[in-house]
Measured scan of single mutants.
Amino acid sequence: VLKALERTRQLDIPDEKTMPVLMKLLEEAGGNWSYIKLDNYTALVDAIYSVED
């Protein structure tokens, strides 16, 4: 979780936006981090930006 938060902080995305999206992605992935961690957490960042749209 810390590495995911560090990555999104680099992009000026607050933890308050990151955590709900991260928890949803983890739930959808059955707790499997490998998809979320791919390409420096690209799936997480993309999911956060899609929620903002």
Rank of each mutant, 00 (worst) to 15 (best):
K37C: 14
A29S: 15
K37D: 08
L44V: 05
T42K: 15
V1D: 05
N40R: 07
L11Q: 04
D15Q: 02
R7I: 12
A43F: 10
A4L: 04
R9Y: 04
A29G: 08
E52P: 11
A47V: 05
S50R: 15
L25S: 01
D46L: 15
A43I: 10
E28S: 10
E16T: 10
A29F: 15
S34E: 15
P20H: 10
I48M: 06
D12V: 05
I13W: 03
K3P: 05
I36Q: 01
Y49H: 11
V51Q: 14
P14W: 05
L2Y: 09
V1T: 08
W33T: 00
A47P: 00
D53M: 14
Y41N: 00
Y35K: 12
W33M: 04
V45N: 00
L26Y: 04
L44P: 00
D53Q: 14
R7G: 01
R9S: 04
P20Y: 12
T42F: 13
D53R: 14
D12Y: 10
A4P: 03
S50L: 13
K37W: 12
Y49S: 09
K24L: 07
E27V: 10
I48L: 09
L25P: 00
E16S: 12
T8M: 13
T42C: 08
L5R: 01
A47C: 06
A29K: 09
L44Q: 01
S34I: 08
A29M: 13
L25Y: 02
E28F: 08
L25M: 14
G30M: 09
N40P: 01
E52L: 13
D15V: 04
I48W: 02
E52W: 15
V51F: 12
V21M: 07
Y49P: 03
E16P: 05
V51P: 07
K3C: 14
V45A: 02
D46V: 12
E28A: 14
D53W: 12
Y49W: 11
R7A: 10
P14M: 05
I48G: 02
K3I: 07
L5S: 02
L26W: 05
R9A: 04
I48N: 01
Y35E: 10
E16Q: 09
Y41M: 03
I48Q: 00
S50N: 12
K17P: 01
A47M: 09
M23D: 05
E27A: 13
S50F: 11
K24W: 09
D39C: 08
N32D: 15
A29V: 13
N32Q: 08
